[in-house]
Nucleic acid binder design. Sequence first.
DNA 1: CGTAGACCCTGCGCGC
DNA 2: TGCGCGCAGGGTCTAC
Length: 274
Amino acid sequence: MPELPEIEVLRLSLLPLLPGRSVVRSLVRSLALRQPLDRRGLSHHLEGRTVTGLRRRAKYLLIDLSGGSTLVVHLGMSGQLTLVAGQAPVERHEHVAFELDSGQRLRLVDPRRFGMVFAAETDRLGDHPSLAHLGVEPLGSELSGAYLAARARGRRGPVKNYLMDGRIVVGVGNIYASESLWRAGVHPKRSVGRVAPATWDRLAEAVRAVLGQAIAEGGTTLADFTDGGGNAGYFQVSLAVYGREGGPCPSCERPIKRVVLGGRSTFYCPGCQH
DNA sequence: CGTAGACCCTGCGCGC
DNA sequence: TGCGCGCAGGGTCTAC
């Protein structure tokens, strides 16, 4: 379900529900998601601990607990993290869940199992292989045209792939990469070496605006998105080009085109993007 | 070193 | 109705 806005909306939806609750026990029902689930590690870091805060880094949701532990959840392509009643029947693909002192259950349902769940010491999160090499947050002050230009130096390849490289900037997924490029008027195949400084500025601003707007609108580019309370129904934030092959560009009405870059569908307007 | 491609896995919609 | 194919928000590993 995820791009960064979905994760942020999930975090915000859980904010009034989780902090103050404590974990009674963890329920590991599958051997592995992307990585093997560490039953003992989860028990050790979670059971008896109280949730003290919720943070987000890239597309990882960080659930901080008393005693200096953090539960890290990544939803992959198809994960849904929801808080349900304790008696709710175990759903198909419910790989891991956490029983809370409220009687509720925080569960991860993830059919494709590209998600990730692990617990670690809060102080050492930065050393974890999944988090150690992440680039700057797209909504923070570090993202700028100058930064994008500097990191692009000496690199080749399409600008779309560059924007999606989490070592440079995190949280720009396949949907919002296309949307950001459209907003900035940049062709997805343009080589990073041929992007002018002013264009990098426009791209940085476009990424920020597109992600910010999606969060403000409830984060849902995705038909199957639910927030932490299991509420669907925000549906379809305004997307200009993604998934609209053949449809009219909102700006110039020319038909949107689709190409494949890095194995991913990429949408753009041949009239507006150069 | 950077880059391109394969790969992990399930489910859905489409054309036949 | 059933089958095979292509495609889907993610990240990571390998081969060049």
